[in-house]
Computed example of a mutant assay.
Amino acid sequence: MSDSEKYYQALMTHRHVSRRGLFRAFVTAAQQSAPEARAAIPVHPLPPGALPDAQFRARCTRCDSCISACPMGIVNRHEDGFPELRIEYASCDGCGLCISSCPAGALQPLPRFDTGLRPAFGNGCVNPVRACRQCVDVCPQQACVIGEAGVPQIDDARCNGCGECLVQCHAGAVKLAAIAATGA
């Protein structure tokens, strides 16, 4: 099933997809791009509550329980068979259903919900005439602020990586990247 088909399936079966996300899906589907070359063991964001990568891969049975349980449709099967977090058209609301549905214990309850992703703001956000502020206005954690240069900045202590800023960005200037493991 293609990414577009997965998106439309999620649109029809889940509770919320933003208008911007729907528009982005149409624009993305219209763009013709060559598939990315991937490493032998691709690195992709794991679902919330995932054990460290090696432990997660050892414990996960690839049963798809977390994928089926996600009401937002953002936990998907990666080409390697393991689940991955795909925040592109809908954000993660931290409901924890993916964690509670994991029979193998590869996903563990979190003391504080965090996807392990953080936004990085690109050059598309800077508008010299009028600042957009969409990411600031929609952030449920109030973790986005506009810095002195007019570029959004993130407060890592407040951010939980939900991806709402990515979903709502009309300029496509937000990318989510995994944060470095703290070893805690």
Rank of each mutant, 00 (worst) to 15 (best):
F56W: 07
F56H: 07
F56Q: 15
F56R: 10
R57K: 15
R57C: 13
R57M: 09
R57I: 09
R57T: 09
A58T: 11
A58N: 13
A58R: 13
A58V: 09
C60W: 03
C60T: 11
C60Q: 07
C60F: 11
T61R: 08
T61I: 14
T61H: 03
R62G: 07
R62M: 15
R62V: 10
C63D: 06
C63G: 08
C63L: 06
D64Y: 06
D64T: 09
D64F: 01
D64P: 00
D64M: 11
S65T: 13
C66R: 05
C66P: 00
C66E: 03
I67D: 06
I67R: 12
S68N: 13
S68W: 06
S68T: 14
A69R: 10
A69M: 08
A69T: 12
C70H: 08
C70D: 03
C70P: 00
C70Y: 01
P71W: 06
P71F: 13
P71L: 09
M72T: 12
M72P: 00
M72S: 11
G73D: 04
G73S: 07
I74N: 05
I74P: 00
I74E: 04
I74M: 04
V75A: 12
V75G: 04
V75L: 05
V75T: 15
V75R: 01
V75K: 03
N76S: 15
N76A: 14
N76P: 02
N76I: 04
N76W: 15
N76Y: 10
N76C: 14
N76F: 00
R77S: 06
R77H: 05
H78F: 04
H78M: 02
H78T: 04
H78Q: 08
E79L: 06
E79I: 15
E79G: 04
D80E: 07
D80G: 01
D80K: 02
D80F: 02
D80A: 04
D80N: 05
G81P: 05
G81L: 12
F82L: 06
F82G: 01
F82C: 01
F82Q: 04
P83L: 12
E84M: 08
L85I: 02
L85Q: 02
L85A: 03
L85E: 00
R86W: 05
R86C: 07
R86Y: 00
R86F: 03
I87Y: 09
E88N: 00
E88M: 10
Y89M: 08
Y89L: 05
A90C: 09
A90E: 11
A90V: 14
A90N: 00
A90Y: 00
A90S: 13
A90L: 02
S91C: 10
S91G: 14
S91V: 10
C92S: 01
C92E: 02
C92K: 01
D93T: 10
G94K: 01
G94Q: 09
G94C: 05
C95P: 11
C95F: 00
C95T: 08
G96A: 10
L97K: 12
C98D: 02
C98A: 06
C98S: 12
C98I: 07
